[in-house]
Design a protein around this nucleic acid. Sequence first.
DNA 1: ACTAGCTAACGACATCTGTAGTAGAGTCAG
DNA 2: CTGACTCTACTACAGATGTCGTTAGCTAGT
Lengths: 136, 136
Amino acid sequence: MGRKKSIRLTRFEIEVMEVLWGLGNGSIREIHERLPEHKQVAYTTVQTVVRRLEEKGALRQIKKIGTAFIFEPVVTRKAAHLRLIDDLLELFGGSARPLMAHLAESGKLSLEDLREVEEILSEQQSNEGGGPRSKG
Amino acid sequence: MGRKKSIRLTRFEIEVMEVLWGLGNGSIREIHERLPEHKQVAYTTVQTVVRRLEEKGALRQIKKIGTAFIFEPVVTRKAAHLRLIDDLLELFGGSARPLMAHLAESGKLSLEDLREVEEILSEQQSNEGGGPRSKG
DNA sequence: ACTAGCTAACGACATCTGTAGTAGAGTCAG
DNA sequence: CTGACTCTACTACAGATGTCGTTAGCTAGT
């Protein structure tokens, strides 16, 4: 098993990756075109960020079409999200409890949301044996 | 009324604030002494960060004892935490659901945790008729 | 082959963050 | 008053981030 160190992505890097995760793979231009409106930057800005993402190992070139490289994610959306969450949790002392409490108090969590999570947990318990184990 | 911008704090800034929230108020030296071991930095480093926090409006001087200023938080721990969460949520499309799912899947959430949150939610609902008290 | 149009490759630069050193003013024990 | 200390105020600086501009190479169409 490769113990990779889980890359930390910045906000904008996440947005770029988000587009790429959505596309499966794509060129700089495609990514640029599909960035959310609130994030309209120059083409070269995307280029730079993609280059940095490549250096970080978050994505890679898989082929070339014409003069353009096609990129593909290396880190999964899930892994990236997990990293974000872990980082946040760390600030909260490592426990998810206070995070949940905040979410609930601020009205960002519905009972319905809880139901769903509950379901996931139940499923997990019945699957115990192959899943992610807690480590200190 | 004052629609505050909700300050964004960096990791280290949060750690400093965390100490100050714990103390209620204190001097640079006190903060420096109580930073967690993994965060042993120079006294002046704390000084710099505190100055920046002051510029940001996250804390303020309330008095002077001898030559030293005593600082006090301006933003509450809760507000700061909420900001952190909101920022994260934004990356998740604004919904808490995927966040919860991740938490559950990665084993960072127990059924017991859910119970507690559920309780918070129930309480909220029963309180829900008392008038508009949705203040940020 | 030639040229217009995309692309990639670089280099730049302002901010933000984390980290610290230095100088000089204020304070307190003698 | 004076010296030893303690703080604050400044300045500095490297690395991370967000943003681009410029230059030159490669492609495709004529």
